[in-house]
């Protein structure tokens, strides 16, 4: 059996090239292993081989983020790696961000397991834990001996497709990914247990620590609506008959942009709702209930609004993850700005 090919990423310091004075060093590749690679190779064992080590100065990486990534990807491509390990970076902030960035890029580009290691306070943990397995390490290189076996163990699990255990067991920073399991007690029994602990003032542990919610401040008001270009964006699942973009009835992964040029109102002969979260009986009869084209066209004629964009954006709100919604919103916003839209009416359902 041929060995699993591993590429290792290090900064100038860990590659023993130099300290701060060498931090502007551009990416370069060396065949085989260097420095911490010895411990990594040892921990991975005989079935694995570190075929190359990529080195980049922390400052260079930080100041040339795009360039550094693409050059490193080019450098390692000929080696067809099957596993990528960056660092560990311990508590070195710039190095941590570089390790996180390049490991994420490698995982995406080559579709191979990529992991790194950092101390809990390294800013790279917060930035990349959702994208990567980041092994928890000590705050300095003195923790190398302990860190590498943990990195190697988790890497082997990923390579072999084994089930990953809880963060505490496999030694990685919790990624905030919600994974199902079967508890030995049903939920209601656990709720009674937790409530009694809380009432008695004992310690209890919530099963879902509340996440941070991104509150978006409202835009400044428009002083003169008669000059505004208005567009409609809806999460009500209104699409042309036949649902050309195949938008899902729940948990949407895409949005659509649909033309209403020359229309005075939304006709049920042209549009339907594919939304699975509400009773669409009335909107199927009158799609203007969700996309108020009829009223907005009147306001446009009367000059109450400057202009109505001749399209609307649509997706399904129900069950759609915040992650997907953020992507839709950012993209729709860009397109609207590019088209000179100054006001958006978001219709919910």
């Amino acid at each position: 059996m041929s060995k699993i090919k591993v590429v290792h990423y290090l900064n100038q310091f860990f590659a023993q090239i130099g300290g701060e004075e060498m931090a502007d060093m551009e990416p370069e590749l060396r065949e085989g292993l260097i420095g911490p690679g010895i411990a990594l190779q040892q921990a991975l064992g005989a079935d694995y081989e570190i075929v190359a080590t990529v080195i980049c100065g922390d400052n260079y990486f930080g100041s040339n983020l795009e360039e550094a990534q693409s050059r490193i990807l080019e450098l390692i491509k000929p080696y067809s790696p099957q596993l990528f390990v960056a660092g560990p970076a311990f508590n070195a902030g710039r190095y941590g961000v570089a390790c996180g960035t390049i490991a994420t890029a490698v995982e995406k580009e080559f579709g191979i397991p990529a992991l790194t290691g950092m101390y809990v306070e390294n800013p790279g943990v917060e930035m990349f834990k959702k994208d990567l397995y980041i092994i928890e390490t000590a705050n300095s290189a003195a923790g190398m001996r302990k860190a590498m076996p943990k990195i190697a163990t988790l890497a082997k699990k990923l390579i072999n497709g084994n089930e990953i255990d809880l963060p505490a067991e496999d030694g990685y920073h919790e990624r905030g990914i919600r994974v199902n399991y079967f508890h030995d007690k049903r939920g209601s029994t656990r709720a009674v247990d937790m409530l009694l602990q809380k009432v008695k003032g004992e310690e209890y542990q919530t099963e879902y620590p509340m996440p941070f919610f991104d509150r978006v401040p409202p835009a400044t008001p428009i002083i003169d609506m008669s000059k505004a270009k208005v567009a409609i964006v809806s999460s009500g699942g209104i699409v042309p008959l036949g649902n050309p973009d195949r938008i899902e009835s729940s948990s949407a992964t895409k949005f659509g942009k649909y033309d209403v040029t020359g229309m005075d109102r939304m006709s049920k002969d042209d549009f339907i709702s594919i939304h699975g979260g509400y009773d669409t009986a009335y909107i199927l009869e009158d799609p203007n209930l969700a996309i108020p084209l009829d009223v907005l066209r009147e306001m446009e004629k009367e000059g109450q609004i400057g202009e109505l964009a001749n399209y609307f954006y649509s997706t399904t709100g129900t069950g759609t993850s915040v992650g997907n919604a953020e992507v839709f919103g950012t993209e729709i916003g860009k397109q609207l700005l590019a088209d000179g839209v100054t006001a958006v009416i978001l219709t919910s359902t």
Binding site: I164, L166, P167, E174, R175, G176, I177, R178, V179, N180, Y181, F182, H183, D184, K185, R186, G187, S188, T189, R190, A191, E207, Y208, P209
Partner: peptide, 12 residues
């Protein structure tokens, strides 16, 4: 969501 089942989710 009334706890009838044993299924639960946790953070990985």
């Amino acid at each position: 969501a009334n706890g009838y089942n044993k299924l639960a989710a946790r953070g990985h």
